[in-house]
Every structure is written in structure tokens, then in C-alpha cells.
């Protein structure tokens, strides 16, 4: 029940953003639509609603967003340099990295952040063993430990605080 309410609220917020100067007619329609959608989808998306009540997690999420934007910016410049270089000095390959995250949301966010950081792209996730296969445009080391250190470690520490 609680997860349905949270999702209805989220849908309603997006609706309010889309129809911004708020008006009561569109708000009523939006409310009906978001309750309808929330009722239909059951508890598909939010499986652990009790976690939403911890304020500390929101704080770490904010820090996480800043870290990702900064990493993205740095890596974008690196890739721009690789592409603009006359010889295109790349060393692509698929490496294997380990993660200690287990929850669905945590793994999804980790995989998406790795993909959003240019230079690395998640190809597949093996949830049972906690292994991610990552395509890396400039492989520094094929070793599991070293690749984990280079790709996953910077995000994982914060994600453990948010999603586990």
C-alpha cells in the first residue's frame, strides 16, 4: 500500500512539472491519472518503501549526483581528447568487475552510472555472482581487482550507503 502511495505521489509530481503553471483542472486530471497508474502497476517498482523514510539516504544521494556529474565532466574531456587526436589512441576491451551491491535498484544505478561515465559501458550484469561486464575504451588492466578499483570503487562506497 505504501509503495503505491509513493508512486502515485511521484507520478503526480512529474505531471505538475509538465503542466507547470498549476491549474486546478489539470491537477484533478493528473491526480486521477496517477492514482490509476499506481493502482495498475502494483508493487512492481518500489519494493522496500520503508527505506524512503531515512533522511540520511537523501543526503548521500545528493552527494552521489554531484560525484557523478563531476566524473562525467572529467571523462567527457578525456574522450573528446581521444576522438580529436589524429591517431585515435584507443585500447578497447571488455573487462570484468566485481561489486558488493545486491539490491536491484543499487545494481541498476551502478550500471547506469558506469554507462553514463564516458569510456566505460556496462554490457551485462550477473546478479548471482555480483559481476559486471564493462566495455572500456582504454583498458588500463585486465585484472579483476585493478579494474574494479578503477571503475567501480568511486561509486560503490556511496551507493552502499544509499541502497543497502
Amino acid at each position: 500500500m505504501r509503495s503505491k502511495m509513493v508512486r502515485a505521489a511521484l507520478c503526480f509530481l512529474v505531471w505538475l512539472g509538465l503542466t507547470y503553471p498549476p491549474h486546478w483542472e489539470s491537477a484533478v486530471v493528473g491526480l486521477a491519472a496517477s492514482v490509476f497508474v499506481a493502482a495498475l502497476t502494483g508493487s512492481m517498482f518500489i519494493q522496500r518503501p520503508h527505506l524512503l523514510g531515512h533522511p540520511g539516504r537523501y543526503f548521500w544521494f545528493l552527494i552521489y549526483v554531484l560525484v557523478v556529474v563531476w566524473e562525467c565532466f572529467k571523462a567527457n574531456i578525456e574522450v573528446a581528447f581521444l576522438v580529436a587526436h589524429p591517431k585515435v589512441p584507443i585500447r578497447p576491451g571488455i573487462v570484468k568487475v566485481k561489486t558488493s551491491l545486491r539490491s536491484d535498484t543499487g545494481l541498476t544505478v551502478l550500471a547506469n552510472s558506469i554507462t553514463l561515465t564516458p569510456g566505460t559501458l556496462t554490457v551485462d550484469v550477473d546478479r548471482e555472482n555480483g559481476v559486471l561486464f564493462v566495455h572500456w575504451i582504454k583498458v588500463a588492466s585486465g585484472d579483476i581487482e585493478k579494474a574494479t578499483q578503477a571503475i567501480v570503487a568511486r561509486f560503490e562506497r556511496i551507493l552502499l550507503k544509499i541502497f543497502e
Binding site: I90, R91, P92, G93, I94, V95, K96, A111, N112, S113, T115, L116, L121, T122, V123, D124, F133, H135, V139, G142
Partner: peptide
Amino acid sequence: PVAAHALARAAHISGVKLWRGSVIDRYEED
């Protein structure tokens, strides 16, 4: 990122080879 992930995984599963200059492919090994 979800679209990129889906495209890359589909390409690998349907047998698109990596570029010849690639150094390593752990996914293929597994």
C-alpha cells in the same frame, strides 16, 4: 544508459565481434 546497455548486450549476444585492436574480452571467455 539503459538503451546503450541493451544495444551493446544485444550486439554481443548476436555475435558482433570486437574491433581487431581490442585487447581483452572477458565476456566472450565467460
